Amino acid sequence: MKPQTAARKLGIYLPATPEEFQNNAVTHVELKALLETPPEWLVELRRTGPHPRPVVAQKLGITITALKRNDMDKPLTTAEIKALLENQPEWLRTARTALAEGREEHAEETSDNEE
């Protein structure tokens, strides 16, 4: 598979990976090995970032759309994410609240449909 696909499956930001990873195809066996016994570079990248948009959005508790809407559609490190969570700007509080409310509504609709 292409390096971009492998990076997406690993939840990592491709430009932050070693050049060898970026320039070579990854087999399914290699991907499985990376998932089961990640090398130090992968462990460190997952721990400190930079993280791709989906991971940033998940760690912030918001949607990718909210990131884009607030010009935060870029890779962030774990430290940058932590700083945002500690000193939440208004847009982040609003986006977190909106996502939480949306999830509550969805859960209510799902439970209503099961009855």
Rank of each mutant, 00 (worst) to 15 (best):
K2V: 08
K2Q: 14
P3I: 08
T5L: 12
T5C: 04
T5N: 07
A7H: 02
K9M: 13
K9F: 10
G11H: 06
A16D: 13
A16P: 12
T17L: 14
T17R: 08
P18S: 13
P18G: 14
E19A: 14
E20F: 13
Q22S: 08
N23Q: 14
A25S: 11
T27Y: 01
T27F: 10
E30Q: 14
L31M: 06
L31R: 01
L34W: 06
L34Q: 07
L35E: 14
L35S: 05
T37Q: 13
E40T: 12
L42M: 10
V43L: 11
R47W: 01
T48L: 07
P50C: 07
H51R: 07
P52S: 08
R53H: 07
P54M: 02
P54A: 12
L60H: 05
G61S: 12
I62Y: 00
I62A: 02
T63Q: 03
K68N: 09
R69I: 00
N70T: 03
N70V: 03
T77H: 01
T78H: 06
A79Q: 05
A79C: 00
K82S: 12
P89Q: 03
W91G: 05
A98T: 11
A100G: 11
E101R: 10
G102Q: 09
R103A: 05
E104S: 09
E104P: 01
A107C: 06
E108P: 01
E108M: 10
N113H: 13
E115N: 10
E115T: 07
E115R: 15
